[in-house]
Every structure is written in structure tokens, then in C-alpha cells.
């Protein structure tokens, strides 16, 4: 297990280096630069700006400086937010995206597993049909539509009650009221996806031999459901959970815009639009590391749920289990 983890970590570091290098050169290859602005500046001011940001040096030197600073955990100062370091931006804004993402993921996982299992159980009956339609809608309609609809619903609710039951938009640190609707909207797509995944996996399990055996043994239906079906059916869900966490915590850009939430997503997107070199590199490397870490975590978690992955084949043979 230790060798397995060490291998994964090494592999992760290499991936991260490759990601950083590729992004660095791709970014500099894009025409235009962070210093260009609508009011053109004189060659003198431009030279001053280039010197200030180190853009006057050859690209390879810039790359060397970047890698050196990155190893010390320093991504430099943003081009567009002139007084803020990229580290500050990540430190202040990622936790907000993360809070929203974790909450969204809670809704999505819980909802996905429950709805998926239920629809599988009621296969080809009305709860199944209703949920299939709902799933298709949730997957195909883009998030900003749901976000806008949710806002209108909040306005209607507030008008009906006569006071602000829920905020239309905005963020207050630790305020659940501000997180509730955005996290629901953010989790909706993943919830639908997980429902579908859970349903098909559940259907497969329901016809499996060991379920039939359990039934033949005369086990109670609820016990079969919880211990034999759910635990096995949930495996594929766990597999996609890693990428889903990364996707949800990093892909909240639209929801963050609509609900005026100061998460990292908007900085990520705006940095690319404004060619803010330092922020692009900082957020890419950070998100990359985050994703790699999560995928690794899922691998390990997977082993905990499914003993076939955790244990080496020899041990299984000694135990006399199936190979």
C-alpha cells in the first residue's frame, strides 16, 4: 500500500510539472499580453511596465524564475489586481468555492444515491419515468438558466412573505442562507449524473447472482438492499466522486457570477480573458494539484470500500477468496 501511494505521489508531481510547463508556454504563445490596455501607452511607460513585471527578460529566464518561485510556493503579484499576490487570491477565494462545492456535493451525492436507488427499485413505473425526465432536464439545461430561475423564485418568495427570507445574491462568510440556493443549483447537474449512474449500477446489481443467493437464503429485503445491493452499486459513484469534487469546486464560475459569490472560479476565468499571467499560472497549478490529490484519494478510498482492490492477489488466495 505504501509503495502504491508513493508511486502515485511521484506520478502526481510529474503531472503537475508537465501541466505547469505546458500552461506557461501555451500562455506566452497566445497573442497579446497582460500589459495591453485600451489606452495604449508610450514605449517608455511600456518599458517601465515590462521591467517591473520581469517581462523584459527572455522567456526561458522567465520560466526559470517562475519554476524557482513556484517551488517556494510563490506565484507572484497579479497583473490586474495590482496590490494582490496570487497566493492571497487563492487563500481568500478558494475556501469560498470549496464551501459552496462541498455543500453542493453533499446534495448531489446524497440525492444521486437515493434517487438512483429508488428509480432502480421502481424500474419502469412512474417514479422511474418522472426521475428520468428530471435527470435529462438537469443534465441538458445549463447551470446559469437554473441560477436565474432560482433568483426569480427567491424574488417571488421574498415578495410574498414581505421580507428577505433568502438573499437574491451575495455572500457573507459562514452564512448558510447565502449558500443554500447557489449550492443546490451548483449540485444539480452532478446530482442528475449520479442518479443516472446509480440507477444503472443498481439495476445491474439487482440481477446479480449473489443477490439471488441472498434472496434464496431468505434474508430480509431491507438487509439485501442496504448490505448487498447499495454497497456494491455505490462503487462507480465513488469512482467519479474525485473528478466531481474538483469539477464542482472549480467549475462554479457561472453560479459564482450569478449569485455574486467571491469564489476562485471567477478569478480563474477572468485571468485567462485578461491574460493575467501570474494568476493563470497560480490557479492552474493549484487546481491541478487539487485534482491530482483528489484522484489519488479516490484510489485509496476505493480500496477501502472494495477489498478486491486493496488486497494483493496472493493474500486473497491464502484466504481462499475469489480471484
Amino acid at each position: 500500500m505504501m509503495r502504491f501511494i508513493a508511486g502515485r505521489v511521484l506520478y502526481g508531481v510529474f503531472t503537475l510539472w508537465f501541466l505547469a510547463t505546458a500552461t506557461f508556454f501555451a500562455m506566452h504563445a497566445v497573442p497579446g499580453d497582460p500589459l495591453a490596455s485600451e489606452k495604449a501607452v508610450s514605449p517608455e511607460i511600456r518599458r517601465n511596465l515590462e521591467a517591473r513585471y520581469g517581462l523584459d527578460k527572455p522567456l526561458l529566464t522567465q520560466y526559470g524564475i517562475f519554476i524557482g518561485n513556484m517551488l517556494q510556493g510563490d506565484f507572484g503579484i497579479s497583473f490586474t489586481q495590482k496590490n494582490r499576490s496570487v497566493n492571497d487570491i487563492i487563500r481568500e477565494h478558494f475556501p469560498i468555492s470549496a464551501q459552496l462545492g462541498v455543500l453542493a456535493l453533499l446534495w448531489a451525492t446524497f440525492g444521486g444515491v437515493v434517487f438512483g436507488a429508488v428509480t432502480a427499485y421502481y424500474r419502469n413505473r412512474w417514479p422511474d419515468y418522472v426521475s428520468v425526465v428530471a435527470v435529462i432536464i438537469c443534465i441538458s439545461v445549463p447551470g446559469f438558466v437554473f441560477a436565474a430561475l432560482a433568483q426569480l423564485a427567491i424574488i417571488g418568495l421574498n415578495e410574498a412573505v414581505g421580507k428577505d427570507v433568502l438573499p437574491v445574491a451575495g455572500w457573507e462568510a459562514g452564512s448558510f442562507r447565502h449558500m443554500l440556493v447557489p449550492s443546490l443549483v451548483l449540485g444539480l447537474g452532478t446530482l442528475a449524473y449520479l442518479t443516472r449512474l446509480m440507477r444503472s449500477s443498481m439495476l445491474e446489481i439487482m440481477d446479480a447472482d449473489f443477490v439471488r443467493t441472498a434472496k434464496a437464503k431468505g434474508l430480509a429485503t431491507t438487509r439485501i438492499f442496504w448490505q448487498h445491493q447499495l454497497r456494491n452499486a455505490i462503487l462507480p459513484v465513488v469512482t467519479v466522486l474525485g473528478p466531481a469534487i474538483a469539477g464542482i469546486t472549480t467549475g462554479g464560475f457561472v453560479v459564482e457570477q450569478v449569485f455574486a459569490i467571491p469564489g476562485l472560479g471567477r478569478y480563474f476565468v477572468q485571468a485567462v480573458q485578461q491574460l493575467d499571467y501570474t494568476v493563470i499560472m497560480g490557479t492552474t497549478v493549484f487546481y491541478g494539484a487539487f485534482l491530482i490529490f483528489l484522484v489519488m484519494l479516490v484510489d485509496i478510498l476505493y480500496g477501502l470500500i472494495d477489498p478486491r482492490i486493496r488486497l494483493a492477489p496472493e493474500k486473497l488466495r491464502q484466504k481462499g477468496g475469489p480471484v
Partner: peptide, 19 residues
């Protein structure tokens, strides 16, 4: 100024809500 978003629709919704 507790709201920052470049989405004009979101701003309009805030205005509708009297925020």
C-alpha cells in the same frame, strides 16, 4: 457595496428584490 458580479441579470434581480 456588498455585491460584485459582472452578470447584469443578477444585478437586475437584486434591484427587483430591493437589495
Amino acid at each position: 457595496i456588498p455585491h460584485m458580479t459582472s452578470d447584469p441579470q443578477a444585478m437586475f434581480n437584486l434591484y427587483r428584490n430591493n437589495s
